[in-house]
Amino acid sequence: MATIITIYSLLGISLIVSFMKSKDKTLKAFKVAGKALLKSAPSLLTVLGIVGLTLGILTPETISGLVGAEAGFMATILAAVLGAITLIPSLVAFPLAGSLVRSGATVVTISAFVTTLVMVGFVTAPMEIRILGKKFTLLRNGLGFLAALIIALIMGVIL
């Protein structure tokens, strides 16, 4: 809700200023926006579908069951992969991580889950590719996944 209010007030102010400065340029901005939105529509729909499917299949309970059933290195890799695939709102993700800690998951496993969860966006990848290109998306997410594993290992050593 806060997001929506912020974005719409920003849009309102920008539009007023823009219209006062030049009507033509404002209309041109609308044209650019409309075309871009149409172009992104298929990838937006794809993202919506994938989000629904992953959240429908990989519920918080399923995830904690999966991660809880494994131990050691495999649990960490599994946690990293699950974190990369799912797109869970932080209000759900962090309590889940907290409950995993209580049920005995190691710091490395939790860090791997949390870090890939926020750094790697598998479900949003179709949209990222559409807007920023394949190379950029693959590199950003691939390097992010590697970095998440390294971060998890370092956190295991420190904490």
Partner: peptide, 27 residues
């Protein structure tokens, strides 16, 4: 249900974001 929830969110957020980006592109 999840898809529909996210669709509602996106339908509200994406159009103004794209218009803002269009304005930025121009100005």
């Amino acid at each position: 249900r999840v898809t529909l929830d996210y669709f509602k969110e996106m339908a509200f957020i994406m159009p103004p974001v794209f218009i803002l980006m269009g304005l930025m592109e121009i100005w």
